[in-house]
């Protein structure tokens, strides 16, 4: 299929740690994880903390490389949105500088062109134009998350990995950010890998959902199907807990 953005095949991942006695030990985290992500699709990933969601993300992003199996990117490197934008936006710089930084790194554009693109993105993610002169901590939580979406977008990715992007925000702001992500998907056919423990949010936003338990994907289905007709016991308990 030509519209794939990411394919993960039989991924086993682990990390190494030094135990109390100073021996190097290996922690297995992911077992035989396989899934596909298509263009314009929002794929949810749910599961309790400690099941390996973050390890999966770190491997997909190439931040760690301790795995067997295959991770195939059909497009440029994916971008990432973190749960707490205050920690992912460099506190020493202004929003304008932060948004411009990816463009500086790739060095394709001159300064006026960079400024123009930053202004474009600021408008696209629904931030006030004057926010470029402010520092992240001077913005509200929702605005900050818009900035980090902007940082991801300015690099024109096909896939954005969002790790609990709205769980630190209150409900009205949550809805606005979800709305923004949905409109980006609709307009630019962006794909999202959306990690959340909040099944409500997943239900609102995602097309398909994967349920992860102890490093394995136990169930994978469309949102409608999974929520109305969960097959695995574990999924049922998760759904029951969310009510």
């Amino acid at each position: 299929m030509s519209d794939l953005v990411l394919e993960v095949r039989n991924l086993n991942a682990w990390y190494r740690e030094t135990d109390a006695r100073g021996r190097r030990i290996r922690h297995d985290v992911l077992y035989d994880v396989s899934f596909e992500l298509h263009r314009g699709e929002i794929l949810g990933l749910v599961g309790e903390s400690g099941t390996g969601k973050t390890t999966l993300v770190r491997n997909i992003l190439g931040l760690v490389d301790t795995h067997t199996g295959e991770i195939v990117h059909y497009t440029k490197r994916p971008q990432m949105i973190f749960q707490d934008p205050l920690s992912s936006l460099n506190p020493a710089y202004t929003v304008g500088w932060i948004l411009e930084e990816p463009l500086r790194i790739y060095g394709k554009y001159d300064a006026p062109e960079r400024k123009r693109r930053v202004a474009e993105i600021v408008e696209l993610v629904g931030l006030p134009a004057d926010c470029v002169t402010r520092k992240p901590r001077e913005l509200s939580g929702g605005q900050r998350q818009r900035v980090s979406i902007g940082v991801a977008l300015i690099q024109k990715p096909s896939l954005i990995i969002a790790d609990e992007p709205v769980s630190a925000l209150d409900v009205t702001i949550q809805r606005q950010i979800l709305e923004l992500m949905r409109s980006l998907r609709d307009e630019y056919r962006l794909s999202f890998l959306f990690i959340s423990h909040d099944l409500n949010v997943v239900y609102q936003l995602c097309d398909r959902v994967m349920v992860m338990k102890k490093g394995r994907i136990v169930e994978q289905n469309t949102v409608a199907e999974l929520f109305s007709n969960p097959r695995e016991e574990y999924t049922k308990t998760l759904l029951a807990a969310a009510d």
Binding site: L63, R77, M80, F82, S88, L89, N90, E101, P102, V151
Partner: peptide
């Protein structure tokens, strides 16, 4: 995370 973010940008 801002350092991870810079790594992901390719800095």
């Amino acid at each position: 995370n801002y350092v991870k973010s810079a790594q992901i940008m390719g800095a």
